[in-house]
């Protein structure tokens, strides 16, 4: 590693020596044409990657959405056909609705619990150990998370159902009940992301000056009162950011659903990304899948735009 890093550096050093005499100012302080060539060299890999694997596919994906395309034969331009079909397709709307339900349950529960956890980590113990433990689920893949909970919540053999039986609630058909499957998936997501979200909020909490709490304590304010009057108002901009980041992430849910229910029972957990995947790789309707992808992207872009607005508002709020 050191060798490969040093070799070009040494060569460039030699070249640089030959090409230009020593200067006593940094290039960026004195405009000169020589920088352009060096700069092109430095940005080339990332820019090429951006162009080929991000910009070009984005444009192409939009193009595909106006075509009939099955990958094996060239795409046929069909104008707005895919979009017309999409708005009339009950399956598309169903999957959007299922995704929204998943997002709402996930974000609602996750935010409340994460604020609670962050406040506990802030007011009770600043232990790195506790924060690390809470972050652990965030580090393993959605696939692993899905399979473990598939097992824990198994109707016959799962320890989770055994526990529910033991405390008197009785077994719950988590994976087979079309009313329960989306909340189940959402709560598993909460389990995975709780520690991470709490850490983001914790970082926000750390920006609140300690003196405010000291002053509050001197005035005899309770923890609850201080939470309502100091913590929550000052945390608001951070909270808004965290919520929006989580919303964007959870709209794209796929892995967890794919390894647990596969969209079932029937299509009760058919989230939008699952619908797109099945259209493309199950029915080879890449054009139609692209149209649904564009719809999802538009939803995400609107939310990203909101986030952008909020993050600017947030920073000026705290300044």
């Amino acid at each position: 590693m050191t060798d490969t890093m040093e070799a070009p550096a040494r060569r460039a050093a030699v070249e640089d020596e030959g090409a230009s005499p020593r200067r006593f100012r940094l290039p960026h302080l004195s405009h000169r044409r020589g920088d352009l060539i060096a700069a092109l060299f430095f940005v080339a890999p990332a820019t090429l990657g951006l162009a080929v694997f991000l910009v070009w596919p984005t444009l192409r994906g939009i193009y595909f959405s106006f075509t009939d395309y099955n990958v094996f034969t060239p795409a046929q331009w069909v104008g707005l056909d895919n979009y017309v079909r999409m708005v009339q397709d009950p399956e598309f709307w169903h999957s959007m609705w299922v995704t929204v339900q998943y997002v709402l349950v996930n974000i609602g529960v996750q935010t409340v619990l994460a604020v609670l956890l962050a406040v506990l980590m802030h007011r009770l113990t600043r232990s790195v150990f506790v924060r690390s433990v809470m972050l652990t689920p965030f580090l393993v893949s959605n696939v692993v998370v899905g399979l473990v909970w598939l097992w824990i919540l198994d109707y016959q053999l799962g320890i989770g159902n055994k526990f529910l039986e033991w405390i008197g609630i009785g077994r719950v058909f988590f994976w087979g009940d079309d009313k329960l499957v989306i909340p189940t998936l959402a709560l598993i997501t909460v389990w995975k992301f709780l520690g991470y979200t709490a850490l983001l909020i914790f970082a926000g909490l750390q920006t609140i000056p300690e003196q405010l709490y000291e002053a509050g304590r001197l005035d005899g304010a309770s923890e609850g009162r201080m939470f309502r009057s100091i913590t929550l108002p000052l945390l608001r901009p951070y909270l808004a950011m965290v919520v929006i980041l989580s919303i964007i992430g959870s709209f794209q849910v796929f892995d967890l659903v794919s390894v647990t229910t596969g969209g079932g029972p029937v299509n009760a957990s058919q989230v939008i990304q699952m619908e797109i995947y099945k259209a493309a790789f199950g029915r080879f309707e890449f054009g139609y899948a692209s149209a649904m992808s564009v719809a999802l992207m538009l939803v995400l872009l609107v939310i990203t735009f909101l986030q952008y607005r909020l993050s600017r508002a947030g920073s000026s709020d705290l300044a």
């Binding site: 910009v55 070009w56 994906g61 595909f64 990304q273 493309a280 992207m297 872009l301």
Partner: peptide, 23 residues
């Protein structure tokens, strides 16, 4: 160019999957 990178940041990676598969 940097602005283009920032715009790239806004494209959900998931959107590029199908076209990248074709590529």
């Amino acid at each position: 160019l940097f602005k283009i990178f920032i715009v790239g940041l806004m494209v959900p990676l998931i959107f590029t999957l199908i076209p990248n598969f074709v590529l």
